[in-house]
């Protein structure tokens, strides 16, 4: 019988530790499938963040170097400068990449480091219990914005792909979502492109994933997926924001 679906060999044979309905496990799988398909498992080095995805190394069967909170782009820079032929990607949440680590992100992107940022945007600090993130939507209630995010007080959510696409040395910036089979397919395509840009050394690449967090959104899993379409994607439009020519 022909096998049509199985565990990618770049994934450890373990049950993942994420909550039901969380987007991380989907994104992990996308990465693992691509590492297999592009034969990159032996070249890949991931920089996981503090946060829910710190245990990514329990799932992805590749080399990893843990970064301090927000420093993924700097750590990845150091690794890539020493090993220019490795596939180096940071795996970062919204607080990590767009708040405490915004400087590292912006400057790595501006230098055009040949690294990829896997940027998981779920609009909250999830691991710490659902606090307000730089990407929390206006009016959205979190554990530190109990009356809803007030743009007059906390500003509007930061649109990372839009900002980074202004920088000359950014090669590829796309926002995708992982809330439906169709979107997941697109997300995989975007991730593949980002990796290809890195391998072609065209500059910095980033894929932003709108990712459901039912636990901290206080929603059901189906409701969360719907919310990504109905609310999140209205504020964070999906699509390619920048792509330079791949050699």
């Amino acid at each position: 019988m022909k096998k049509v679906y199985s565990r990618p060999k770049s994934l450890h044979n373990v049950a993942n530790h994420y909550c039901p309905g969380c987007g991380h496990s989907i994104i992990h799988r996308i990465i693992a499938e691509l590492l297999d398909e592009m034969d990159l498992q032996g070249k890949a080095i991931c920089v996981p963040p503090p946060g829910c995805a710190v245990l990514a190394y329990n799932c992805l069967d590749i080399d990893m170097v843990e970064a301090p909170h927000g420093r993924g782009a700097a750590v990845a820079t150091g690794i890539k400068r020493v090993q220019p032929d490795s596939l180096v990607f940071s795996y970062q949440g919204d607080g990590d990449l767009a708040a405490i680590g915004l400087a590292e992100t912006m400057h790595a992107a501006n230098r055009g480091e040949n690294i990829t940022a896997i940027f998981v945007n779920n609009a909250v600090y999830a691991m710490t219990g659902g606090q307000m993130a730089p990407t929390t939507l206006a009016g959205m209630k979190t554990s530190t914005s109990p009356y809803g995010r007030n743009p007059q007080n906390e500003g509007h959510p930061i649109k990372v792909c839009e900002i980074l696409s202004m920088l000359d040395r950014v090669a590829y910036a796309e926002r995708v979502a992982v809330n439906s089979p169709a979107n997941i397919k697109k997300a995989k395509k975007a991730t593949k492109k980002a990796f290809e840009h890195q391998l072609n050394k065209t500059g910095f690449s980033i894929v932003e994933y709108l990712s459901p967090c039912p636990t901290n959104w206080r929603m059901g899993t189906i409701e969360s997926c719907k919310w990504v379409d109905d609310v999140m994607a209205k504020n964070f439009p999906l699509g390619v924001f920048k792509e330079v020519k791949c050699k």
Binding site: P68, A74, V75, T77, G78, R81, V82
Partner: peptide, 11 residues
């Protein structure tokens, strides 16, 4: 943190 990354990569 760049130092950290480079050290992890063996430099």
């Amino acid at each position: 943190n760049m130092v950290l990354g480079a050290a992890a990569a063996g430099a």
